[in-house]
Write a protein that binds this DNA or RNA. Structure first.
Lengths: 215, 215, 215, 215
DNA sequence: AATGAATGAGAATTCATTCAT
DNA sequence: CATGAATGAATTCTCATTCAT
């Protein structure tokens, strides 16, 4: 049924996208969708398989086990996200711009890939084991990226040098994650504009909040 | 709430009809401890029972099922927390003070009851079902409490009237939750002072960040 | 609640009916009622206790275990029933009369004590173990009583001497039990007259059926 | 009965899509054996599995739950029995012959498949729920088949028109079931001839018993 | 004697994972 | 490579029974 729906290449891009990569991708995509809807623990491997249009056993040709599927989502997606973010931050001309990139990217993620967002905000915390062992390093990397922006702001004299960049980064991430969570849990009908507005307000609050105390 | 209903001795007076309350408490306390260490899904009912020093079946005399144990932790503890918070916010003389109460209380919770904190920050999100059905209302109540503080700040002309109190509340909660999470997941050896410092910085950042734009 | 509802003597009759006997009786009566409604295996000991207005543990003061309650119902009630039947058969003047006594008594049992009837027809067969170990002897006794009536009929030259009294007895019991079963399972609204008519027809069929072949 | 339904090779032809049917059959056969020996409630699903030579979980690939196994035995076997019976009754030339077919078939069932007989006579009544919900319709169908034979006898003027066909059918079934029960419970060593003799006597008793009263 | 809270052995069922085809 | 039937370990929950009060 959903077997032959993409008769041609996945996205042509790359060129290393062989059949097998296709299937791996398909499984990941299906998993994101199902995890988002039902949560990691309430999702059956067979459900992922069905959603991906493959047999149960096929999952195990691409992933060691169910845990590995969730882990791979993080590793794949978040790594990709980090790359994009890193580049955009680099390209942004000023501290203010860089911070806005962070805010808008993290929240913007939602609009395009709501399922992934839910997986990241909710499922991320489902298994302490997974969280601590696998997600933590990537999470740390993400925080450090934001922290580096803060450090930059401090070097430019914009950000209060007394503030711990790591604390600020964590707080910013947490604030955005919180907004994402309430949005994801809340009325799904609420327009995306709400998110945009929230993003903008967040950026302002943090920009003003971290500003070097003049006095 | 149910904390001070027995203002006197724990198990002295009466000795009848009390035991059951004790046991329920014991089970909840044990559950918090085990959930914190292993996560909700990796915790066996028998482990809670053993930690509580009761038989497996006894759990079911006090809770309908394993889910209900987690739910009860939220209902009991968070309700209690809300009560305390509400009172302290009331007592705080100014907007600044009220905001600091929120920050310090939410983070202060950690120092005393790290396990509960981990359950709240991590386990809270373990089951979409639980999260959406049971935790959401209490969570909303919590957010609204913070939002009411923001509204107050706006009335006093301290907080930028353009900001959405709900967004600010969510962001503040998220920021604090994020800090708590990294602390809970991070090196457990890190001194509590780190938390206090983070709390203080957060309060400043938000206080400055939400301040009415003078222009 | 249902504790003190019978402040005086049970039925005064007997005189050996001490308190303890009262309670045993009450439990048996309750058990018959509940077994009839839900079946032996779907009945909880606590349900019997509640129906009897006693505590769960009290059941065990009068019966060794749940099985013993069911067994006791048979031993008590069926023994009593056998006694009555034996006497009435004795009193009946002719073979025909005796046979009618059997038919009417076995079916008549239903009208007065439908619950007991359901326990006997349905629950009797619920546990192979019980059935084989405990009910079988009484059942055999019952069959032998009927068989003795058949033997009498044969001695009087009314019943075909070729027929096995045991087979006839078994068949008669089975026929009546079958009628009882369909009645018990069928529309409960069906008037008791239906049973009476069936009883009468059965008596005729068997009386004619077993008659000595004249030829 | 279900023995020779695949007149050719057991597992040769095809080799595909068969296995599952085989396994279902195997489980049912095993269940009949175990239920007969220990009763429905005293049988563990794992015992059925072991007897069938499959894993516990495999049972659940073919049946929704333990109840469904018992239900399926009835539905499968009794449906098959009804088919055979219907045909043979049709083929029998006279009322007398038809009645003998009923008697011999119902009892004959025993000789070949004693276990099935015990399941039908004893286990049939184990769960009121099962009995009332699932077995009742098939049972009713069975009774109606017999009743139709009686009606035929009445049309031919052989059977007393005063008799209720349904009552007669129920009685006949009950009588046969009773004989089967005592045989199944009784000394297993008793030769099958005993059953044949009983069958023959039953047929005579009923044939004479229901005969139109001449006079 | 009576109670009913507590017990814990036991059972049905699920579902991640395997492996013969 | 892919399949999906089969596996069986693992887990929640039930409920007959006990025993301190």
């Amino acid at each position: 049924m959903s077997k032959n729906e993409r008769p041609f290449s996945e996205d042509a891009a790359g060129g290393k996208g062989r059949k097998s990569t296709d299937k791996r991708e398909r499984i990941l995509r299906a998993a994101i969708k199902v995890f988002a809807r039902k949560g990691f623990y309430d999702t059956r491997v067979s459900e992922i398989a069905k959603a991906a249009g493959v047999a149960d056993g096929t999952i195990y040709l691409y992933f060691e086990n169910k845990d590995a599927v969730l882990i791979s989502i993080f590793e794949d997606r978040i790594t990709k996200l980090l790359g994009v973010l890193r580049k955009e931050i680099d390209d942004a001309p000023s501290f203010e711009e860089k911070l806005r990139v962070v805010v808008e990217r993290q929240l913007g993620l939602l609009e395009g890939q709501r399922d992934l967002a839910e997986v990241v905000t909710v499922n991320l915390r489902q298994s302490s084991k997974l969280l601590k062992q696998y997600a933590a390093p990537l999470f740390t990397e993400y925080l450090e990226l934001i922290a580096s922006v803060v450090v930059l702001g401090q070097r430019e004299g914009i950000v209060d040098p007394e503030l711990s960049p790591r604390v600020v980064a964590t707080a910013l991430w947490g604030a955005l994650d919180g907004i994402a969570l309430t949005w994801a849990l809340g009325d799904k009908a609420s327009r995306p504009e709400a998110l945009r507005r929230a993003a903008s307000q967040m950026a302002s609050v943090f920009l003003d909040g971290v500003r070097a105390r003049r006095a």
